[in-house]
Structures are given as C-alpha cells and as structure tokens.
C-alpha cells in the first residue's frame, strides 16, 4: 500500500515568525504536483507571539487535516524554544529540522529563516526545485523575493 502513504509535515514556531507563510509555500508546491493535500492550523491570536503550528498532509488521498501526535515524517521548527513542544509530533523515524540547521550568519535577513528551513526540508521531498521556486514566487511579494530565494538556496544547498 505504498502509494496510499500520506506524508505528514508539521511546521512550528511563534506568531510573527512566518510559520503560516512557510506552510503556504509548501502547500503550493505540493498542490502544483497534483497531489491531494490538507493544510490546517489554528490561528486567530497568532499576531501576539504565542506558539503556532501548521500541519500539512499530502498523498493520494488525505482525510483528517490534523497530523496525529507521533506520526509526523518531518517537523520543522522556527524557534529554538518551540523545539521541545513540537518534537512530540515526530514519528520515531521522522526528521526534525531545527533553526540551528542553517548558518544564521549566512542569512542576509534573519526573517527568512522560515524559507531557509523549507530549503532543508526540500532535500527530503520529491518535488522538483523549479516547483519550489515558483511556489516561493507565488506566495511572496516582489520586494521580498530575492532575500527568500537566497535563503531557500542556502537551505537546499544548491546555488
């Protein structure tokens, strides 16, 4: 039943860090691949710095929009203080991507850490780089593009 497998990604961080923007870009890339997907988060008070998580699930057919605890294939965490909380989503074989995975010094703008971490995630997913790049362009305004494209490149390890 390999082709029925659903891939689960949880992106976690604090309000204002760009958790939802990162999951928008990821969803866009998956959507453009023609897969079924569901993206879910609780928002409403996110502007005031509280914990935020966004769940993205994709595959041939996705039912529940929420990633069950212990079943995430990937957990991407934007804030160091959220790592402990977010870790519980990970399945034993899952991949945890934390903010120290990118070299902060090499980021021209610290706020693009979300997209840099997506770059790291992209190494693990079978989505062509061109699809990622057009998803970034579709989700971000013109003036933020260059900084974020560079951040993605940094994370993905391509140039």
């Amino acid at each position: 039943m390999k082709d029925n497998k659903v891939t689960n990604v949880v992106i976690a961080g604090l309000g204002g860090q760009g958790v939802l923007k990162a999951s928008d870009i990821l969803s866009r890339a998956i959507f453009d691949q023609g897969l079924d997907l569901k993206k879910s988060e609780i928002h409403g008070m996110s502007q005031r710095g509280g914990s935020v998580t966004s769940d993205v699930r994709f595959g041939k057919k996705v039912h529940s929009p929420m990633v069950p605890v212990g079943e995430a294939d990937f957990v991407v965490v934007l804030a160091p203080e959220e790592v402990e909380n977010a870790r519980r989503y990970l399945r034993p074989t899952g991949v945890l991507i934390t903010p120290d995975a990118v070299d902060g010094e090499a980021l021209s703008n610290k706020r693009s850490i979300n997209v840099a971490l997506l770059g790291i995630l992209s190494r693990h997913l079978e989505i062509p780089e061109s699809v990622w790049r057009s998803a970034i362009r579709a989700c971000l305004p013109e003036k933020l593009l260059e900084v974020n494209e560079n951040a993605f490149t940094l994370g993905r390890g391509t140039s």
Partner: peptide, 13 residues
Amino acid sequence: EPVPPRGKPPQLC
C-alpha cells in the same frame, strides 16, 4: 489522555 504541553501563550504586543 496525555496532556499536551501548554505552549507559549499570546501576549499584548
């Protein structure tokens, strides 16, 4: 049920 961690509460900006 397992109690989920509290997470950071929102606060006034």
